[in-house]
Design a protein around this nucleic acid. Structure first.
Length: 408
RNA sequence: CGGGCUGUAGUAUACCGGUAGUACGUCUGCUUUGGGAGCAGAUAGACCGGGUUCAAUUCCCGGCAGCCCGACCA
């Protein structure tokens, strides 16, 4: 991608209506644009990051048998009345048609849709288990959207639903999902700071589990047991906290952001929707369900929040919109090397703009691609290569630079 | 949803009861080209509605919008 043709531009000024680090940097660097509180446009750079995160999540969920579907965000009132949540789900966006008395909801989650849908194909114990997921824009009428991408009224979420014949099968799958989530956070580069956390079950169960990433911008207080690498959400702490796994009282309080959750729904939704199956003896049983969420767009905010310095963003390679940023300084053209990089399969953003060197360096630091490559009159046939995380630069031949980019 | 604060060019801001200044951006020209470079010129603005006043961007009321704290939540 040639930067001269990029849809977005960088900005020198920090937006005055954003205080969160993730929103300030992502807006300044041209990754996102705020339409209103809690609703952001994803610009080319930002959308590439979002798609990279999405691809990792999809891959890991498919590995544990998830089949991808896409359900409507626009939903009829009736489904929500079946579970009683039309009146009790306080962040549900509800509205009435302009042409009739029909009322609708914008989906904040899809138990009300997937449960009756699953009923069409789950009739017998032989149809179980089943796992389906979607990656879709969700809508929640948050009383207070805040912290940039961390809490929006519209956000991208992966929601996975599992259907089982009995609770032990649910337990087995629940554990598989937990492991898949661990792999996802590792691949995204936030595994070190992400903890499996015991939390309140809310309306679902007496407890649930969530994954919490420690960042300064978090909303939740958690107590971490470093020995077990697990945490407890402050919301369920009664006495002065004991690790539920090892019994240790040596827990550290941290501020964190929830990056995923897993719930055992059991029959909470199969009951009202009469989602039942015939067992081996011809008896009728309710399907046991689980649901598992990951906020894709929130993850982008969390990553931006965690990986940055005073100059700008520092993207982990797994999610970076491009692997390399090629800067052509002075009257040296980078066109040839740009083609070489593309031919070698390196995703590259090429700063071919007719602007000063200083501006190119500042923008490269702000955008934060993993590798910066410079061609300039000073370097002759050689190029300079630098990792965004490092301070030192290396002057190498073009062949050597290609090797570094392909080998890393 | 309670409490607080704030709305001025594209962005960030300044001043002011007498119709608005700066920086960045953008446009033109020339010069520059390894850390947002220089000179000259140009462009563009008071959230909406009502009130007070000779006069309101400024004061008052209402609305809308944004941010922060709390409660709630992926």
């Amino acid at each position: 991608m040639k930067q001269s043709q990029l849809f977005s531009k960088t900005s020198r000024n920090v937006p005055k209506d954003e205080t969160s680090v993730n929103a300030q940097l992502l807006i300044r660097a041209g990754f996102v644009d705020k339409l209103m509180a809690g609703a952001y446009s994803y610009l080319p750079l930002g959308y590439r990051v979002l798609k990279n995160i999405e691809a990792i999540v999809r891959e890991e969920i498919e590995k544990i048998g998830g089949q991808e579907i896409l359900m409507p965000a626009l939903q009829p009132k009736a489904n929500w009345e079946t579970t009683g949540r039309w009146d009790t789900y306080d962040t549900l966006f509800r509205f009435t048609s302009h042409y009739s008395a029909s009322e609708y909801a914008l989906g904040p989650t899809h138990e009300e849709i997937i449960s009756p849908l699953a009923g069409q194909s789950i009739l017998s114990y032989q149809d179980l288990p089943k796992y389906v997921f979607q990656i879709q824009t969700k809508f929640r009428d948050e009383k207070r959207a805040k912290s940039g991408l961390l809490r929006g009224r519209e956000f991208l979420m992966k929601d996975l639903y599992s259907f089982h014949a009995d609770e032990s099968d649910l337990d087995d799958y629940y554990e598989k999902v937990r492991q898949a989530y661990v792999r996802i956070y590792d691949r995204l580069g936030i595994g070190e700071s992400t903890y499996f956390t015991f939390a309140s079950g809310g309306t679902f169960a007496k407890y649930s589990h969530e994954f919490q990433t420690v960042t300064g911008a978090g909303e939740d207080a958690i107590y971490i047991c470093d020995k077990c690498r697990i945490a407890i959400n402050k919301e369920i702490i009664e006495d002065q906290s004991t690790c539920p796994t090892c019994g240790s009282k040596d827990l550290n309080e941290s501020v964190a952001t929830e990056v995923g959750n897993i719930f055992k729904l059991k029959t909470k939704y199969s009951a009202p929707f009469k989602l039942v199956y015939k067992d081996k003896n011809g008896g009728e049983k309710e399907v046991i369900m689980g649901c598992y969420g990951i906020g894709i767009s929130r993850l982008m905010g969390v990553i931006a929040e965690m990986f940055n310095d005073d100059k700008g963003l520092i993207w982990p390679e797994a999610v970076a919109p491009f692997k390399a940023h090629l800067l052509a300084l002075g009257d040296t053209s980078g066109d040839d090397f740009y083609r070489d990089l593309q031919a070698a399969g390196v995703q590259v953003l090429y700063d071919d703009r007719a602007v000063g060197a200083g501006e190119k360096f500042v923008d490269a630091d702000l955008i934060g691609l993993p590798w910066r490559i410079v061609v300039s009159p000073k370097l002759g046939d050689q190029v300079e290569i630098k990792n965004r995380r490092d301070t030192e630069v290396r002057i190498v031949s073009k062949e050597e630079a290609l090797k570094i980019l392909k080998g890393e």
